[in-house]
């Protein structure tokens, strides 16, 4: 554990908390892509199956449990509790175009051809593109609420900080994992356009609006 990794995890946690409290207190999931949230629930489920096989640390277990529970809680809020506010007409990204390549790639490129390892690899690939339905939705409506922008910024920063963590681990331990690094870079690059808009607009108190 190093500072980048810790900040990355905290940023991830912050993103989830922002999203949950936004939906909960506004009693609305308008502007949130349910499809991205479904993909995240699949990502955490596939990745954290090791909860029942390996003990790493109390920190590790707690974070995994929080990420899993919060992803299902988010789905519950969107699909059941506040389903009337779900903006399904703008959430039209076809997630099979992300799921199928992630499955095929995980079967082809992995560290070890075992069930848990292929699922871990699948979750890494899928996570790198899981935000696309959400970004697609923002581009389709041309705008995002500030709170949604804060959510996206925190979520995007998380993998960016993990990249610094991987640099640090390479220098200090000589450890590196190409699958995680390449997927992490792809994931972060997908947010770059958004990061730019966030810094130039949202931080200056303006609403995130895309040029028409």
């Amino acid at each position: 554990m190093n500072i980048f990794r810790l900040l990355g995890d905290l940023s991830h946690l912050l993103a989830i908390m922002i999203l949950l409290q936004k939906i909960f207190y506004s009693r609305s999931c308008a502007g949130i892509s349910a499809k991205s949230q479904v993909l995240f629930a699949i990502v955490y489920t596939a990745r954290y199956l090791d909860l029942v096989t390996v003990y790493v640390s109390l920190y590790n277990i707690s974070m995994k449990v929080v990420f899993l529970l919060s992803s299902y809680a988010t789905l519950y809020l969107i699909y059941l509790k506040f389903r009337a506010t779900y903006d399904r007409n703008h959430d039209t990204f076809r997630i099979e175009f992300l799921l199928l390549p992630a499955i095929v790639l995980a079967l082809l490129i992995n560290h070890q051809f075992s069930a848990l390892e292929v699922l871990w690899t699948f979750s890494i690939y899928l996570e790198s593109v899981a935000i696309l339905p959400q970004l697609f939705m923002v581009s389709k409506t041309g705008e995002a609420e500030s709170i949604t922008s804060h959510y996206l910024f925190a979520l995007g920063s998380y993998r960016g900080l993990y990249i610094l963590n991987w640099f640090y681990r390479y220098w200090t331990e000589g450890h590196y994992d190409l699958i995680a690094i390449v997927a992490g870079v792809v994931q972060t690059v997908l947010y770059c356009d958004f990061f730019y808009l966030y810094v130039t607009k949202v931080l200056k108190g303006k609403k995130l609006q895309l040029p028409a």
């Binding site: 990794r5 995890d9 991830h12 390996v54 790493v56 560290h111 070890q112 390892e117 450890h175 994992d177």
Partner: peptide, 10 residues
């Protein structure tokens, strides 16, 4: 080696 290390990160 790499496979074990994967369980630590989130």
């Amino acid at each position: 080696q790499v496979v074990e290390e994967n369980h630590d990160e989130l």
